[in-house]
Amino acid sequence: MTSKTISYSNAIQSGFCYLLDNFEEVFVLGQGLWSPWYVGQSMRELEVTYGRERIMDTPVSEQGSTGVAIGASLCGYRPIIVHPRIDFMLMAMDQIVNQAAKWSHMLGGQAHPSLTIRGIVNRGGEQGAQHSQALQSWFAHIPGLRVVMPSTVSDARDLLIASVLSDDPVIYIDDRWLYDNEEELEPVVELSLGKIGPKISQEGTDLTIVGIGHSAYQSRVVAARLRENGIYSEVIDLRVLNPMRVETIIRSVRKTGRLVVVDGAWSNCGVAGEVIASVVEKLDVQFLKASPVRVTLPSAPAPSSGALEKNYYISESRIASVCVKLMGDKKVTSKLERVV
């Protein structure tokens, strides 16, 4: 078996190719698909390989084109609608929340909008308030939607494939900050999305760090640094935000007694708070050695000016500092000051 190192964005590309090669009911639509500007290296020249009938660049109509994907999905196709910037996907909220999420339930299980909605988080670079959002909690709130956020290169490919092969509407959210990460990639194994849950990326005994998408990657980086300094954290990549399965996290916190949840989005009514609430509800308080902590964005829109932006997003040193503080042991803390 040969495995090769490829980037996160190329892994997404290979997921698209796998789907388009093997499933004739798969087609893709969205804005910018015939242009290198919008989707970077993740969908390069797909229209050349698969033709413009299967790779449809659309007019500037997020809601209309999402509805088109739903309609085709009700008639035996598995479309992927791509929103190259998740902020613009808000224009399609009626189709996503009122239509895609509801049809199975309100029609008694007789209609299944089996589309995948890819929303790309694209932050930094002074892009400002309407080009920088991470809105996963909006979608994770809605019964009927499955929401996935891959943080690893292999998940970028394999969760895309699992999303498209699911008979439910799936929101697949990827983050451009992950695009250059590289990993070895094993051959594709088709997974059932309903069976996929949080994944332990690194085992540990001192504290549990749960990350989501890019913040799961950051959590792994932080965990490696903490480990060098004698703190053994267990990192859990949430992967699937809805329906959320928390058993793995509960088991981990029962062992470590400490929980940090990192989500590159706002706190209020967010995924980080949901993870903590779900754990605390089901875990006897005697297992907790410290109050769980969220690491999230300030409650403000993304700023444009670089002077504000550099302190707005979550840094790895901020996560590390929270973890160290949570350990609460002064001796350990002093030993670890250089980590933060």
């Binding site: 009700l74 189709q95 029609l107």
Partner: peptide, 25 residues
């Protein structure tokens, strides 16, 4: 009859998508 909904205009793009599927078929 593949579905009706009360959100005004909600099914109009969906019918277009069903038409696209018919065209592909």
């Amino acid at each position: 009859f593949l579905g009706s909904v009360p959100i005004v205009g909600g099914t109009v793009p969906i019918a277009v998508g069903a038409g696209l599927a018919a065209k592909k078929d």
